[in-house]
């Protein structure tokens, strides 16, 4: 009986050896280190910089519109009769540094910026759960003054510096916190600060593989800006179709330049001062 059992057992071990996976011969494979990608669909959440850069050698052409206010009613076709637009070119110098320029018809504003990935969220041998990016930009408002007085060009400039700290916490959900300082070389009244501290937050939730809902909010720390200035709040959708990303949103900000939506938003959501708008992003691979 025992003999039989032993024979049976040795047969089993024989079978086991034979059915072993061939690939197991190669032993444990090395754990690869990989960067977490696609936290947001494009380089902007709505108005604010996202955790993403354009890849090295890729040019991103962006066209954005903000229409008039919804509370303009049917006469203004809910704001569609007025539109301001920004177009811009963003270029990835390498996989951690991008630069961009743009022109916004609102106050005839030019802007330029860079954004660098300081720390990249990654997993594998070592886990880094969040990304940190640094973005700095300059804007020049070139619209003629209503009083026709000439001012020095330097007084038309403003600077924005931001840290973008965030994480893709699951396949569909990403968030970021954006401590920001804006320096305006010239302000309207002595009551306003030239240097304004702002804290921003943004969230992305995917609804399907190609559609996501986004929101962003900027809290201006108290007693820094004129009383009529509101915190910027935007809510929108990303729709991705191959090389394009369409972003459709509602916002109380008219300006699309960083300094503008951060420190010059005067629309109130509760009063219906809401603008419909869109960004369209189209990428071109310029250099391989």
């Amino acid at each position: 009986m025992k003999k039989l059992l032993l024979v049976f057992l040795s047969m089993l071990s024989f079978l086991f050896v034979q059915s072993q996976d061939l690939l197991d011969l190669l032993g444990e494979e090395e754990v690869t280190q990989e960067f977490v990608e696609a936290s947001f669909k494009t380089t902007r959440v709505i108005n604010v910089q996202s955790l993403e850069n354009v890849a090295g050698g890729v040019l991103d052409f962006k066209i954005s519109h903000r229409f008039g206010r919804l509370n303009g009613g049917a006469y203004e076709l809910f704001g569609l009769d007025q539109a301001t637009m920004r177009f811009g070119f963003d270029y990835g110098i390498n996989d951690w540094l991008m630069v961009g320029v743009g022109r916004n018809s609102f106050e005839k504003t030019y802007d330029a910026f860079f954004k660098a990935k300081v720390l990249r969220q990654q997993k594998g041998k070592k886990n880094i759960p969040l990304s940190i990016l640094w973005a700095s930009g300059i804007t020049a408002k070139t619209i003629k003054r209503s009083d026709n007085n000439e001012i020095d060009f330097k007084h038309r400039l403003a600077y924005v510096h931001q840290l973008i700290i965030g994480s893709k916490i699951s396949k569909g959900t990403s968030f970021e916190l954006v401590p920001t300082v804006v320096h305006r070389n010239l302000v309207a009244t002595a009551d306003e600060n030239n240097l304004v501290y702002i804290i921003g937050a943004a969230l992305r939730q995917k609804l399907t593989k190609r559609i996501a809902i986004n929101a962003e909010y900027f809290y201006i720390l108290p007693n820094q800006v004129a009383d009529n200035i509101k915190n910027s709040l935007s809510i929108g959708f990303d729709i991705e179709t191959g090389g394009h990303v369409f972003q459709l949103h509602f916002t109380n900000s008219t300006s699309m330049s960083d300094k503008g939506f951060l420190t010059e938003t005067n629309g109130d959501w509760l009063d219906g001062d809401i603008h419909f708008g869109f960004n369209i992003s189209r990428v071109f691979t310029v250099k391989r």
Binding site: L5, S10, M11, F14
Partner: peptide
């Protein structure tokens, strides 16, 4: 039994 194991 042992022999058998070795054999197999």
């Amino acid at each position: 039994g042992f022999c058998l194991i070795v054999f197999f």
